[in-house]
Nucleic acid binder design. Structure first.
Lengths: 155, 155
DNA sequence: CTTCCATGCGCATCGGCGTTCCCAAGGAAA
DNA sequence: TTTCCTTGGGAACGCCGATGCGCATGGAAG
């Protein structure tokens, strides 16, 4: 992990489908060296995969909900049951157990408010062990540093 | 946007660097037809780009913080100033204005608690108009449906 | 200081992939 | 029915990516 690797990761994070030759030029390396480094980064787990950035809005999903959920108990078994149930729900794209009150934070995508209401009623409301559910809706997303920029220093 | 397009998007979301020929086989199309559809999806904004999934932990970033921030005012100018300042902070990878108390929710990556403390002191604490800052730390991430699965129906 | 070894780059090659033509088939409108 | 438009398949061409080889560099040992 040197400066060149960081540059490669930035480049891959910005455009994962860019030709290796392009990336190589950007970071000042030959194709072959760049290819080998990329393979090494994949093998070492620094790169875990590649994905497409989807246009939610364009796909008809206009609601992003950030949901806080608290459980009645903090027994590991109950947490596990809750997590297993959450993992089955369509629309839940992120879920994390967080400090500070032992609750969960989810990110949920939905087509519209009706769709979210349905999700809330049919799935969230039936999760085991839940005491409170608190939904916030994203009114506006602020562009931030990209993941790679955040990790390797700005801009 | 038919079933085939959805399948292509799922495939691209799962592995953006997969050869088109592989994707074509998966969705039951020829290479040429598949390429055309991918290009169309990119042009229409359904696909906005491709990125690498980075292994934060492996890269030395062990802290994921979810931060709630409330401002003193809701005047649009103040919001804009806040957002402009937030966008400059390294480590902030997501930021959204949400309903319910007119506050912001950020996701922040840091190397460790010391690093986060520094970030908090040097940057978060100096954001304009802030009244309260509430940090939660991710103790455990629960695997959920992928974005594509959430959008096009699970499995 | 010299020698050896390991690491990592660049070059060239070759196999495979992606893009782009062209043509055919199916459906809608006139 | 005819025409047009859309969309898929096939083949060719050019380009890309993976691998092997030779070489340079740097550090350690003698």
């Amino acid at each position: 992990m040197d400066r060149i690797d960081a540059a490669i990761l930035k480049s891959l994070a910005a455009d994962a489908r860019a030709p290796v030759s392009t990336i190589a030029t950007q970071v000042g390396l030959s194709q072959s060296a760049c290819t080998r480094r990329i393979q090494a980064l994949e093998a070492s787990g620094h790169v875990q995969g590649y994905g497409a950035r989807l246009g939610h809005r364009r796909l008809g999903f206009r609601i992003t909900a950030l949901v806080d959920i608290t459980l009645g108990t903090q027994v590991e078994e109950d947490l596990a049951r809750f997590e297993a149930a959450v993992a089955q729900i369509d629309g839940v794209v992120e879920c994390a157990l967080v400090s500070g009150g032992q609750d969960y934070r989810l990110k949920i995508l939905a087509r519209d408010l009706d769709d979210y209401e349905r999700l809330h009623r049919e799935h969230l409301g039936r999760l085991p062990g839940v005491v409170t559910i608190n939904s916030s809706f994203v009114l506006r997303s602020i562009p931030t540093r990209s993941e790679a920029e955040a990790l390797f220093g700005g801009r």
